[in-house]
């Protein structure tokens, strides 16, 4: 059952990413060269709607959150490394699979590289666990928790920043 739900969710997500054209190398690298904001429009809209949906359902007691731990050093180093590879490959993990499906066959090399990268990480994990991963551990924290306020003002700020960004991007034709 779990797998069937995953498959259906994936099909819909793949369809939405393909229609929005965010799985293209041009759109990914276009953003990184600050010439095309399509992927940010897509992602930020999704995040803002998702925030309202997730916190709405959470406050009704329908769902629980699943927060990833804030390991500051690992996120900064890992995040920057991710960015370096992302720029060279032109794809992130989710989009690489979709890009291959729409005929961008060079994405297969990025996917193979990702599998190798995952294998290398598994080998390095024991050493990383006692070093980088243990530096700056703050646990599973959220912004409203850290600020000591309700999530809603944070959502309002995110949405406002998003709308200002969208207006700017449309005005600049990015």
């Amino acid at each position: 059952m779990e797998q069937i739900i995953g498959l259906i969710t994936g099909v819909l997500f793949g369809l939405l990413m393909q229609k929005a054209e965010v799985i293209r190398f041009e759109k990914q690298v276009g953003f990184m060269l600050l010439k095309d904001m399509t992927i940010i429009k897509f992602m930020l809209t999704g995040v803002i709607v998702g925030m309202i949906g997730i916190y709405g359902c959470h406050s009704l007691g329908l769902i629980s959150l699943s927060i990833k731990a804030t390991n500051v050093a690992a996120i900064i180093i890992g995040g920057l490394l991710f960015g370096i590879g992302w720029a060279i490959a032109g794809y992130c993990p989710g989009t690489s699979v979709g890009a291959l499906a729409e005929g961008r066959i060079h994405a297969i090399w990025a996917i193979l590289g990702m599998l190798v990268g995952a294998g290398i990480y598994a080998e390095a994990y024991p050493a990383l666990k006692t070093s980088v991963l243990s530096w700056g551990k703050y646990g599973k924290i959220t912004l409203p928790q850290t600020l000591g306020i309700s999530p809603w003002p944070v959502i309002v700020v995110f949405a406002a920043v998003g709308i200002v960004f969208f207006v700017w991007a449309e005005k600049k034709g990015l």
């Binding site: 920057l80 991710f82 992302w86």
Partner: peptide, 14 residues
Amino acid sequence: IGGVILMFGARLAG
């Protein structure tokens, strides 16, 4: 190469 680096980074970042 990009794929190797980005996945190592993604796993480190979680």
